[in-house]
Design a protein around this nucleic acid. Structure first.
Lengths: 215, 215
DNA sequence: GTCTATAGCAGGATAGAC
DNA sequence: GTCTATCCTGCTATAGAC
């Protein structure tokens, strides 16, 4: 039987369901049976299409995670182009918006960052994909963008620490929704997300060693 | 046979080994067999002392995780008392030092934050312990400390967002050592940790809406 | 309290019919 | 490509000797 409703191939369906489950529960907590049952397809289909469970997991990163990372990156670049300048304020705003409000649905965004966090706390082969093909290039790009606006005395390490700090906030507000909601007492609605973006920009900006006090 | 070397009871030994393994691999990836083999004690000992695997996991939080959280808190208060004032600069410095250099060994600190992250991404009953008994009180304390130094126009939500942002950095630099090291290109030695603390203080301080520009 | 033996079940993977 | 039946391993948990 063709899985789920419609035109998707079994393969795609497996990838989609697997992503959701791996993100929510982690690799070891998900069984192949749970995946195939949820995807309404056969137990043997995972082995037929991917060889084994581990390769399915890797392909979730290769085929789905990477794609989302590219969407986010494209959104960032679009946002930035719309700003008309590349001041730290514009860069951070564009970045925070792409990552927090960005092109993904809330659910997709959650899965994306949960998978990322899982690879950071217990790296597998997928870590290389996350690191080399996504984070490193992004951070290098940001470094280039910030460079002209920072004091000459600021060395590369310090610039990187600043970028990592901004990234840590974005990451945290994405993956730690539960504790954040408990503490702040709001849901993650549109209004709160706007506020988060504004907060990240404000907090980051004044924290960055920019030449002049913008704003 | 008495487990491991020495005076520790089997129970303590199980808790110690379980904490390490649960932190490194996550609940589902660790089997009771692995725990008892590593602890050099009997397969049945987990069920004898804790009833089942899940209760062992919970007790790791109740008996070990909470204790560490208390050490860190005590260290923070000691640091702060040593400062002689409660300016945001002193508070953040005391906090960052307690969390990044603090009273724990590197290994203990790593486990502590890995367990915390795991509960944040996939909460179990232990989440309540982490949240209600540790994070909430800490954040409320910080709120009180910052209050007198913030603009009157800053509402509670904004103060909390600021505290969460500082926390996100500390958390990130503790649990994401691997990607951080890859990007910065240093190990987490004493010198780098000093630098991290300094960076967090600098970045946070100028980011906080304090009345006057300290430093 | 400690240990062995084992029940009972769920997991990944595969063979082979269709 | 799909599906069923099945192998085999490894899991948690327990019973019962010591």
């Amino acid at each position: 039987m063709s899985p789920d409703s419609g035109n998707k191939t079994t393969r795609d369906c497996l990838l989609e369901v697997a992503e959701r489950l791996f993100a929510q529960k982690g690799y070891d907590a998900v069984s192949v049976r749970e995946i195939t049952n949820t995807a309404k397809c056969n137990l043997a289909s995972v082995n037929y299409h991917f060889g084994n469970k581990k390769t399915l997991y890797l392909n979730v990163f290769r085929e789905r995670w990477m794609l989302r990372a590219q969407y986010i990156r494209a959104c960032f670049e679009e946002n930035l182009a719309g700003c008309g300048d590349t001041s730290p304020a514009s860069v951070i705003q564009s970045l925070a918006e792409a990552l927090i409000k960005g092109p993904l649905t809330d659910e997709e965004r959650l899965f994306h960052f949960q998978l990322m966090i899982r690879e950071m706390t217990k790296p597998t082969e997928a870590f290389e994909i996350v690191m080399e093909e996504t984070m490193k290039p992004t951070f290098e790009g940001l470094e280039q963008l910030f460079q002209p606006y920072l004091h000459e005395s600021i060395d590369e390490d310090r610039t990187l620490l600043n970028i990592l700090s901004i990234f840590s906030m974005v990451l945290y507000f994405n993956f730690a929704r539960l504790p954040v909601s408990k503490i702040i007492g709001h849901a993650y609605d549109q209004r709160f997300k706007d506020r988060l973006v504004q907060h990240i920009v404000d907090f980051s900006l004044s924290g960055l060693p920019v030449k002049e006090i913008a704003r």
